[in-house]
Structures are given as structure tokens and as C-alpha cells.
Design a protein around this nucleic acid. Structure first.
Lengths: 353, 353
DNA sequence: GGTATTTACGGGTACGTACCCGTAAATATA
DNA sequence: TATATTTACGGGTACGTACCCGTAAATACC
């Protein structure tokens, strides 16, 4: 354990130098009662002086009680498989932390049913809870949950979406504005015609303003680069293919010169399917996330680029942030923006999520 | 540690079920001598049956002797700062594994001096060695080192470059062919003129055939996509700016229609500087690696794209692969190709190496 | 002044594994 | 058959920390 020179200083060494027992040192380290001010100060001084680093291995081993982290995310549905990836990352972290006595409890809610979010929130709050990772898609309800955690002094991490005003431990997810910026570049890079561009938002819940932020990024790019493309926006609140086809037919009729489409979430495959059916492969198409359907269309050339924010990594980091904070007591970056990955036919094979 | 239901099975439980002592179980687990065939089989059966997973925490804690991993990589020079990034990843892994009793020893060699590689190899082989991470840029010497490790049964991992025939634990680095493929797409995406494209290789050592592999990828893309661009190649064996300027002036004179340049390594900034000086910003330029100078030119628009293979991650993964193999005894992917990241002005801010 | 309570601390055991040391039984050697 | 050697195994301690329990001393209460 200690290296050859045997220079590891532990509680034993502290105790010796302070002329107290190990138990007393332990009390000071864990801010427990039963130590006189004088002794406490002396021990703290020694700890500071020799820059004592506790041995996490021994600490977790000796601690008989497990640490509980809960996860509250949408369940992955046929509607969108997006949440499979963060879950994989969470599982990976779980495996790694298992022998540290860290236990994860999973709770899932339905993206189309805000009541399910509340139900699961209540459920997880009724159990042991030392840390929470969740996706705050329903704003009001998510704020409630955050307050409950604040009251209990339980750290929580947001994944994939943010509540800027909450006292979270960390936000882990995309920088949507910037990601729209990247999308706009890719959409306008090939030919600088000044045809209108279409921004498509396919989503049942009007809740998140993700698409607005992305659209703002796109607009910003167009303006900053002196381009004059008109930006047309369409909101499609039904996720089935008929609704998508209907809306798109309409808007392409109204703006026949549209030659580029940006879909603000992972449902870009629905648009690709439409373009395939209507034989409009010349329209450039960009959207989000490394899902199987999307990759399919990428390969067929109907989707030009996919933008991806490492969903697997998000899940992994979310759990690790809790671990680092609760167990290691290390400082955590409050805003962890993920890389904005650009995926094409050519590099998709080596993009492991 | 164990969860509430106390369902953790350890050596103690195995010992009980086999009617032997903990020490005997330990002997079986570590393949030590002093156990009869009969007892050994019985214990192995029980271990298998209950899918025993050793507690790494306790294991590392109880083991008094540290594990030594060595690293042999080029030192980062003003010539190229590329190796700073892998080093950061290695440091990150080191921090994480420190309390596991894992100790790293760093050895650096000079990219322009193969003797320094040999010297450092010999040095590291004379010390404790439980695993080795190195960059096999000098082929013959690297093969020698690999054999030495093979003889001692020390696992070794290659980073950033590969020796296909060696018995490495893992290769962690780019898939160069594919990465050339991506580069060709980006270079030809904007306008499909069929002007000649220039492939530039700036490197002192003729050693690695990296540039050949990359060029093959580019050629493959051009052919597969029915493009007719001529491919011009130039090798520049002096890394100073004069040599670069001289060669480029010559080739641009010989092929005045060249409108796209691909640099096969991180020295793309030298070419960008040349283009800036000659006022040729319209020539598209692509190269490798997220270095400060390169990013500068990316921002100024002289470099169109940078391709990057997560050098920090490579270092981190390299050490972790050794750890997983030596300590956890987990299976390791033999070929770990890194993602082919595409960096533009727009997403560079969130590319954390 | 005597008893009850609190404060301040030490002893000691446990976590799960590694490994040293001791020893009875089995086998080899004379 | 007696002694030396090997084989096969158990006891027990240590790793560094957490935390229970016990207790002398200090303080409070009547």
C-alpha cells in the first residue's frame, strides 16, 4: 500500500503526534462531538500541516453502511431510445463503484406524463438518499424535487437538461446554443445559397425550451456570418409519422426553396423517412443523437450530420460527480458542458456513443 | 459495505462451505501451491457456483506491496506539444489509482533520437515492473522492448501508434485509415471542384508509416465517391518554417490549382502560417490535433477543420487498461480505436481534449 | 458533601483479503 | 523402524479507518 519508503501518514500517525487515541482523531475528522476545543484544534493543525489524505479504500471498507444514490430519468420508449445511452453510462459507474459500497436505485418516469414524475419523486424521497441524479424535464415538478433535496441537504445533479436557478451540485449536458451554432455552420457550409432553412421541433411536451435555445444559436450563426437565409420554424406536437408528414408537406409547400432542415432533437429519423418517401434527398438534414435509426439514415445519405453530446458519458459522469462529492469530498465543476460531436458516415463506426 | 440484506459472499463464506480455512481458499484464488487437487477442485467449484467477486478494496488494502506501472513516451517539446495531452490523462489515472497502491514511473525519450528510447527502455526494465504503457515510434527498438516484456510476462499497452504483430495487451489510438477518410470528406464537402488536393507530411523520422495509412484513407474516399481530384503528396523532413515554406512554394507553383491541403499530423499550424503569409486563405486546410497554435489558426479561419483522437483519453485509458488487467483481472479490448473528432471554430470551446 | 450526569477520551473489534508462521499428517530416506 | 523432508492446511495478524462501548474526570444538582 504505502510505497517503499513507507511514507504514508494515516490517523495512527496523527494520533501519535497529538498524544491522543485514534478514536479521538477520528472524531475530529468526522466532526463528531466529544472532543475538547483544545484537542480539536491541535489535531486539526496536525492534519493540515501534514496534508493528511484519508485512505478511501480503508474508509469505505470499514464503513458498514452503504451509500445510496438514486436516479430519476425517463424510461426509454419506442418513441425515443435516447435514454438508453445515459443508462449505460450509469450502469458502468455502478459497476465501478459497487465494491465501494455504493448502491444505485433506479426510478423511471414517462415523458408524456408529468404525474409519473411526481409519483417517482415522492417514492425516492421516502427511501434512503445520499445523492440524486435526475433529468428536470418538467420544470415545476423538478423545482419541487430540488427544494426537497435542498431541505435534506442531499446533493443532486442534473443530466441533459438544466434548471439554471437551482442549487444543484452540477449540470451535465449539452450547451444547446453553441450546438445550434455548430449545426448552422454545417447546414450552410456546403453551398452558400441563401435559401430558407427549416427548424423542426418534434415534441409532445411544450415544456422544455431546448428548441428555442438551439434556434437562437442557429439564428446567431446566420447573423454573425452575414448570411441572409430565412429561418422557418415548425412545431410538431404529435410524434407519429402522419403528423410529421402532414406538417412537413405543408411547410415545404409554403416555402418550396427550403434546402436545409435542422431537427432540434433525436427525432430526426422521422424527417429523414419523410424525405426518403418524397424523394427529396437533396435537402440537407441535420439532427441529434447517435440512435440506430438515425445512423441508418446517415449511412443512406439522407441525414448529412448528426450532432451528439455523449449521452453515455453524461450518465457516467453524473454518478461519478455524486461519488466524488459525497465520498471523496472533492470539488465538482458546476457546469459540465459536453463536447459537441459531429458524426458523419465516415466516422460513425468509431463513435462509441 | 454489503447491502442491507447482507448478501455479500466473500472468502469466509467460501471457506465455510468448503470446510477449510480462509488461508486455503486464498491459496486457491491466487493459484498458490500447498493445496491438494481434491480440495482445490471443491473450492473452485464453489467459487464458480456462487460467482464470487473479490472485494478489490480489501484486496488492495491488505496487499502491502505496491504495483508499479511504467510509462515511456516522447517528451513534449516546442516542436510539438502533442504529448502533453496523453500525459494529462495519465496523471488523471494516477490520481485515481493512488490509494489503490498503484505507482507510476515516467520515462521520456526524444523523438529525434532513437538511442534515447533504448536508454530509457533499459532503465525501466532494470526496475520493478508490473505493466508498461509506451509509444512504439521506433519500430525495431519497440519490438525489442516488447520481447523483453513478453519474456518477463509483463503486460504492455501501445499508445497512439501500433505494432500489429506484437503481443500487446491493447492498442489505444486512432484508426488512421478511417481518419483520412473523414478528412477527405471534409476537404471535398464544400464544393465539388475537381482540383488537385495536397497531402503534406512534415516529420523528421521517416519511421512511422502513419502518413501512408492516412493517405490511403484519403485516396480510398476519393475513389469510392467517384471523385477525380488528383492527389499530390509532399514529404518535408525538416520541421522548421523555412523548409516548410520552400517545399510548399514549390508544390503550389507546380500545381497552381490546388485548393485543399491535408496535413497528416499536428504540424498543420506551420502550413497555416505559410498560407497566412502568402495570403492564400481560400485554400482549405485540414490537419490533426487540438493544439494551441492549431486552434489559433482555426479561429482565424485559416484551418477549416481539425481532426483529433482524444489524446488525453488515450493516456487515461492506457493506464486504466493496465490496472483492469493486472489488478481486476478483467478482459481488455485489444484494439481500442479512439473516436475521430471533428473540430471547428464553433465547437472548439467545448472540446476538452 | 454525596450522588447523578455530562464531557472527553481510550481500548478494542470489525470490514474482506493477503500472507506469515506453525504443525499434524503423509511421504521419502536411511 | 526411526528420522528427515515434504505436503496440506489452520491460526492469526495486518492493512487504515469507522465506530461501539466503557470509564475516569469534570461538572451539575440537591
Amino acid at each position: 500500500m504505502a510505497n517503499e519508503e513507507n511514507v504514508y501518514f494515516g490517523v495512527k500517525e496523527i494520533a501519535k503526534r497529538a498524544n491522543v487515541s485514534i478514536a479521538t482523531v477520528d472524531r475530529v475528522i468526522h466532526n463528531r462531538t466529544g472532543v475538547s476545543e483544545k484537542t480539536r484544534n491541535k489535531i486539526n493543525a496536525i492534519i493540515k500541516e501534514m496534508d493528511y489524505q484519508p485512505n478511501i479504500l480503508a474508509s469505505r471498507l470499514a464503513s458498514r453502511k452503504p451509500i445510496h444514490f438514486s436516479i430519476l430519468i425517463p424510461h426509454s420508449s419506442k418513441d425515443t431510445r435516447f435514454w438508453e445511452a445515459p443508462l449505460l453510462g450509469i450502469n458502468r459507474a455502478e459497476k465501478e463503484l459497487k465494491s465501494y459500497g455504493i448502491q444505485l436505485k433506479y426510478y423511471y418516469f414517462d415523458l408524456n406524463d408529468r404525474a409519473s414524475f411526481v409519483r417517482q419523486s415522492d417514492l425516492l424521497l421516502s427511501k434512503d438518499l445520499d445523492g440524486l441524479l435526475y433529468s428536470p424535464v418538467f420544470v415545476d415538478e423538478a423545482v419541487q424535487l430540488a427544494s426537497a433535496c435542498d431541505r435534506r441537504e442531499v446533493p443532486y445533479v442534473f443530466i441533459d437538461a438544466d434548471l439554471p436557478e437551482a442549487k444543484k451540485l452540477s449540470y451535465i449536458g449539452p450547451h444547446l446554443f453553441q450546438s445550434g451554432f455548430v449545426g448552422a455552420k454545417l447546414l450552410t457550409y456546403r453551398t452558400t445559397t441563401h435559401h430558407p432553412l427549416l427548424i423542426v421541433n418534434i415534441s409532445k411536451s411544450i415544456e422544455n425550451n431546448n428548441s428555442l435555445t438551439i434556434a437562437a444559436g442557429i439564428r446567431s450563426y446566420i447573423e454573425n456570418n452575414g448570411l441572409s437565409n430565412q429561418l422557418v420554424t415548425v412545431d410538431i406536437q404529435d410524434t407519429d409519422s402522419f403528423a410529421v408528414a402532414r406538417h412537413l408537406t405543408q411547410v415545404l409547400h409554403d416555402y418550396p426553396k427550403i434546402d436545409g432542415i435542422f431537427v432540434t432533437n433525436s427525432r430526426v429519423s422521422a424527417v429523414a423517412a419523410f424525405l426518403a418517401k418524397k424523394k427529396r434527398p437533396e435537402i440537407r438534414l441535420i439532427g441529434y443523437d447517435f440512435l440506430k435509426e438515425n445512423c441508418q439514415y446517415l449511412q443512406e445519405g439522407l441525414i448529412d450530420f448528426l450532432i451528439c453530446h455523449k449521452p453515455e458519458e453524461q450518465g457516467y459522469r453524473g454518478i461519478m460527480a455524486l461519488y466524488q462529492n459525497v465520498v471523496v469530498d472533492a470539488p465538482i465543476d458546476k457546469m459540465q458542458y459536453m463536447p459537441i460531436d459531429i458524426i458523419t458516415t465516415e466516422n460513425m463506426d468509431f463513435y462509441g456513443n
